[in-house]
């Protein structure tokens, strides 16, 4: 069953990728454009595909994958279906880092990639503080320490907003925080990719721990699993994923919470089997949401993070309702 889900999602992912390349305000030939870009030509097709749509699509997929996977990993580790990536404090830290760029004008030499780099640094600092504060990876300590660091970062972020140098900087900052994958270049992808690969590697190496943890940490330890080391690896991996994705694309809500939740019954609730499907479905969802953003009438762009929240919140209410009916 899990294999069937994974292969169906792979096919869907490929379809989303191709569809995303065809959607946009200019009508271009996708395949010739792609070939032209790879061949180094500078035809209109090659420029539109290679410099605008390909980076946007790949970043949407990567960000979605990161959010889906980190959500599934954290829910498995904390054994809580309501756990979500921002719980570690990494996403607020990333937001604060990126906001500092708009405020203080940090890293001017990096150009458009500056918020991304500062965001990564912010996520890393928040993560280190959280792990230091939590002391161990006990689930309630991670939640409390993550909440504490999130609150501190949130307060600092509010201060930055409060003292924004001018309305334009504030607007830029707020729009950035709302989450978007537009106007990103391949340099953003290079920023995202290493964190994505290392973070995913760390999480996937702990699949056995996630399985064992289904029955509690006592059982997991009695089965020879290193709970302390493994849970630190999971928190580290999830924070890298969410930190880098927030650093590049701002905050995109509900994906990390909802995707694992929706897929869970399809993999018979097994936390280890949820990881890959959640990665693929997260990628598909964010990319599809971005396509919707692009299809909306031109004018003031609806931000991707706003759209995922608008769609995610009712879905979440429905899930709570369904869960409630099971127990009443």
């Amino acid at each position: 069953m899990a294999r069937l889900i994974t292969s169906s999602l792979l096919v869907l992912l490929l379809a989303t990728f191709v569809l995303s390349l065809t959607i946009g305000s200019t009508s271009v030939q996708v395949l010739p454009g792609l070939c032209g870009f790879l061949g180094g030509q500078d035809t209109l097709d090659a420029i539109v595909i290679g410099e605008i749509r390909l980076p946007r699509t790949l970043i949407a997929l990567a960000v979605g994958a990161a959010l889906g996977l980190s959500g599934a990993a954290l829910q498995g580790l904390l054994r809580n279906p309501l756990a979500e990536p921002s719980l570690t404090g990494a996403s607020q830290g990333a937001a604060l880092g990126a906001a500092s760029v708009f405020y203080f004008g940090l890293f001017p030499q990096l150009g458009a990639a500056a918020p991304g780099v500062a965001g990564l640094i912010g996520a890393a600092v928040a993560l280190m503080l959280m792990l230091m504060l939590a002391g161990s990876a006990r689930s309630h300590m991670v939640i409390m320490a993550g909440l504490a660091i999130s609150t501190v970062s949130g307060a600092a972020l509010a201060t930055v907003l409060n003292f924004a140098p001018n309305p334009y900087a504030m607007q830029e900052l707020v729009f950035w925080l709302l989450g978007s994958v537009s106007e990103r270049g391949l340099e953003h992808l290079w920023l995202l990719l290493p964190a994505l690969l290392i973070g995913s590697g760390l999480i996937l190496s702990q699949r056995r721990l996630l399985s064992g943890l289904s029955l509690g940490d006592e059982v997991a330890r009695s089965m020879g699993l290193n709970y302390r080391y493994g849970s630190i690896m999971l928190v580290l991996g999830a924070s890298m994923l969410v930190g880098s994705s927030v650093a590049v694309a701002g905050s995109i809500g509900f994906v990390g919470l909802l995707v694992p939740h929706i897929l869970r019954p399809l993999v018979k609730h097994r936390p280890d089997r949820l990881l890959i499907p959640a990665t693929l479905a997260g990628a598909i969802l964010v990319c599809a949401a971005d396509m919707v953003v692009r299809l909306l009438p031109p004018g003031r762009e609806l931000k991707l993070g706003v759209l995922t929240s608008l769609l995610g919140a009712p879905l979440f209410i429905w899930l709570v309702w369904k869960e409630r009916k099971r127990w009443i």
Partner: peptide
């Protein structure tokens, strides 16, 4: 005491 965090079969 044991408990499954998820609705495993």
């Amino acid at each position: 005491s044991s408990q499954s965090a998820w609705a495993l079969t």
